[in-house]
Simulated assay, not measured.
Amino acid sequence: MKLVRKFFLITSLIVVLASIAGLSDLTEITNKPEIERNVFNGLPGENNQILVVKIDDTEIAHPQIGIADADIVYVEQVESGLTRLAAIFSSKLPPLIGPVRSARISDIELLAQFGRVGFAYSGAQSKLRPVLAEANLENLSAERNPPSIYGKDPNRPGPVNMILKPDLLLERANAREATVIDIPVTAPWVFGDQQESLVQASQVEIKWPNATYRLKWSVEQEKYLIYFGDSPNLDASGEHLFVDTAVIQLVSITPSIYGDKFGGVTPFSKTTGTGKAILLRDGFSHEISWERESEEDVTTWRRSDGEVANFKPGRIWVFLTDQMPKITP
């Protein structure tokens, strides 16, 4: 009987100790701090104030500076069928960004979905300035900041020689009480595993009247490498730029009432309403749709079955065009 009682006592002690150890492990798991992820790129990182920089995208402007650190890059059509970038930074800031160029009317509607962003650009035509002033944008342009922040690169020709020091820009902006620049709260996409697709996309060609981008799937890097025309699209650091998720967003592009100093008509890319899109990730293409009821709403991306399309965490580029891309399996 004593042996039985002793056995039960030992067994009970083991169970109690195991329970305590289990609770300890559970407590550790429960108390483990949640990893902060950047809202825009879905990767571990901070959510700092949103800075949007307009960047020249003509051939003479390449290689561009600081693009590799952008969380999101929009490629939009400007005068003469060329393209210009709106690079969005939140998780981190590079020391320099450029070459900085002027704002366009499409930027107001496009950027409204991100809240009140800090908007960095070289300037704007006089007719557009009051419209920009009324928009929900914090004006951080070169027109309001000194050359110590918006400097000139002596090794680049004008007008593609304006280079921004973003840390000094935000420091100066935040020193003013009236400055309001949001941090990311909601992203215009959802991150998740790739949904079923039978369409391989080893190369994709995206066109505008006088500009072409190509995306080539790299099996080794498991990313789409970006080509500007036929040349590798390099950052000034020497890195071959890439995307983890690319979207060709088919939009209406129409002439606006604005123009450049050379007489070119500024096109307007409409990013509210509904339309079709091509989502590229993991070497596959997905035909999806987009919808955005008003400027304040974020864009929603849906599969053909109506479910929300999943983006891959990482760098995201959105190409705004009215031409269907050419996809090579």
Rank of each mutant, 00 (worst) to 15 (best):
A142M: 04
Y258E: 00
T245E: 02
L132I: 12
L164G: 12
V219W: 13
H240Y: 05
K261Y: 10
E143Y: 07
L164I: 08
A135M: 15
N233D: 15
P146R: 12
Q195V: 08
W189P: 09
K207G: 00
G238K: 06
Q200C: 13
V219P: 03
S231I: 04
L132C: 11
V265Q: 10
K152S: 00
V265M: 06
L215K: 02
S148K: 06
L241N: 12
P209M: 09
P255H: 05
G263H: 01
L128Q: 01
P130G: 00
M162D: 00
S218C: 09
T245C: 04
G263D: 01
E171G: 10
D230E: 11
Q194H: 01
E239S: 13
F242W: 14
L170Q: 08
A178G: 04
V265D: 02
Y258D: 01
A142V: 01
G192D: 03
L250Q: 02
R172C: 10
I183D: 14
I253K: 04
T245S: 04
K223D: 03
I163E: 12
R144W: 10
K223L: 13
R214Y: 10
V204Y: 07
W208T: 15
L170P: 06
A236F: 04
Q203R: 12
L170E: 04
A211G: 02
V160H: 00
D230S: 04
V160T: 00
P146K: 13
V199P: 08
L168R: 11
V185H: 10
V131I: 15
P147M: 09
Y150V: 05
A211L: 00
Y213C: 08
S252M: 13
P154T: 10
V247D: 11
P154K: 02
G229Y: 09
R172K: 13
G158R: 06
T254Y: 10
V160F: 01
Y258G: 02
L128T: 04
F262N: 12
V219Q: 12
V185I: 12
D235N: 04
Q249Y: 05
A211Y: 03
P232Y: 01
V199F: 07
I257V: 09
T254I: 15
L250K: 05
K223V: 11
D230F: 08
W208H: 14
G151Y: 05
S256F: 07
R129V: 13
V251C: 04
V243A: 11
L169W: 02
A246K: 07
Y150K: 08
R129M: 12
L234N: 12
I181H: 07
L168T: 12
I206Y: 08
L140G: 15
